[in-house]
Simulated assay, not measured.
Amino acid sequence: MDRRELADFLRTRRERITPADVGLPAGPRRRTPGLRREEVAHLAYISTEYYTRLEQARGPHPSREVLAQLTRALRLSDAERDHLHHLAGTPPSPPPGPSREVRQSIVDLLNRLPQAAAIVLSATYEVIAWNDLAAALMEDFSALPRRDRNLVRRRFLEPRRGGRWLSSVSDAGDFARSAVQHLRAASARYPDDPEMTGLVEELLAGSEEFARLWATHEVAVRPNLRKTFDHPVVGPVTVNCDVLDISDRDQRVIIYTVAPGSPSEEAFRLLSVVGTQRLDVPG
């Protein structure tokens, strides 16, 4: 436990929060920048004396419960929470499960890519965000229940209704291997998450192909940077694939773009117009 660094860190985090940030009145004669020590102690459900001793580098070793309460009271980010735990000599516990919350800035990014199809995948391969062109190219994810947005489950357990793109994309086999490798690595990061363990158990019981790939214990993922979708309305669409890692949330942004001047670019233009309309179905 680094008492001096912990004390300085708590003080600087306290001083950056205004009373209004936590719903407290500013009041007259406030000379302390940010919150007062007694206010932080109140928000963290600990005594003022105990918190004061922590800021004066003479406090006892705080428990995980106290650290969690301080994290909430001081509105720490995930990185700051981990730093607080390390300063206190108590390494942070792994998160209970993969995050499904997509930052607004990432959602805005997807919507500002009108000439690219883009989705966000959680660590369990669930599609948790997408833009309009991705829905037109792949599937209207908004029309699906959450369970059916999991690409691994759709690929291995429900191949017939796994979506036209999962069965007809040019790298279907590579996708299967890559997905299993990603999922095996993710399962090691979230060993206590019931949703993760339940998904793996469901896949092992329901798919011989998944069980065979899972048994290889491969976790080294070789990215496929190019693939072709066989779209029922606009025909073959060849795309370049780029992946952006959102490391703090264990998520990935998959961006599909087409070569300028190619037939696929014309297909993208048509898809941006027709959207998710089923023009292949007779009216």
Rank of each mutant, 00 (worst) to 15 (best):
E5S: 13
L6V: 01
A7G: 05
R16G: 05
L24S: 02
R29K: 15
G34D: 07
R37I: 03
A41Q: 04
H42M: 14
L43P: 00
Y45T: 10
Y45H: 15
T48Y: 04
A57K: 03
S63G: 13
S63C: 13
L70P: 02
L70T: 05
D78K: 11
E80M: 09
H86C: 07
L87W: 03
A88N: 08
A88I: 11
G89F: 14
V102T: 07
D108Y: 08
L110Q: 07
R112S: 14
P114E: 08
Q115G: 11
A118H: 10
V127A: 04
I128K: 01
N131D: 09
L137P: 00
F141P: 05
F141C: 10
P145A: 03
N150Y: 00
L151M: 11
R161P: 01
G162H: 06
G162I: 09
A176Q: 08
Y190L: 04
D193I: 03
P194K: 13
T197P: 00
E201H: 13
E201Y: 04
L203K: 05
E208D: 15
E208M: 07
E209P: 00
A211R: 15
R212M: 06
H217L: 07
E218M: 04
A220P: 02
P223F: 05
N224M: 12
N224Y: 10
R226T: 12
R226A: 05
D242C: 04
D245F: 05
S262Q: 12
R269I: 02
V273M: 12
G275D: 09
T276N: 08
L279F: 06
